[in-house]
């Protein structure tokens, strides 16, 4: 019995003798696109930017900038009365399609869950519908 206890006590010592073993070894970093998009962009910065969220905002601002360019090229905002009995300009249609898409994604996420390919298609369809008819 005593021998057994000694043996157990000795086990960590044996392990110690092995040094660090493979604990300290860095695992080989494998580059994946998913990781590239989602890793912290500025480490330790409180705003916590990632490339994915940055891309999201660039997309939104680019869309707004596109509306501005279109407005400068063809002033008047392409105003019309859509089928929802709303008078809308290009900018309004962009807003309606973005907000509508947000609701589509949220509804799908709550009711069905990931992945979000189906609602993406729905959102694109909604956007097309907004710019075409509303």
């Amino acid at each position: 019995m005593r021998r057994f206890v000694y043996l157990i006590l000795a086990l960590p010592a044996v392990a110690m003798a092995q040094g660090w073993g493979n604990v300290g070894q860095q695992k080989e970093e494998v580059f994946t696109w998913a990781k590239w998009w989602t890793e912290p962009l500025f480490s330790g910065f409180w705003m916590a930017w990632t490339r994915a969220t940055l891309a999201f905002f660039i997309f939104i601002f680019a869309a707004i900038a596109l509306m501005a360019v279109l407005e400068l090229r063809r002033p008047g905002g392409d105003e019309r009365d859509g089928i929802l009995r709303l008078t809308t300009t290009r900018g309004d249609r962009l807003f309606i399609s973005l907000l509508g898409s947000a609701y589509i994604f949220l509804a799908w996420l709550g009711l069905v869950g990931l992945p979000l390919w189906a609602p993406l298609a729905l959102a694109l369809a909604w956007t097309a519908f907004c710019f075409w008819k509303v």
Partner: peptide
Amino acid sequence: YRFLGDKH
């Protein structure tokens, strides 16, 4: 005035 994006 009316200017670019005023309503929005």
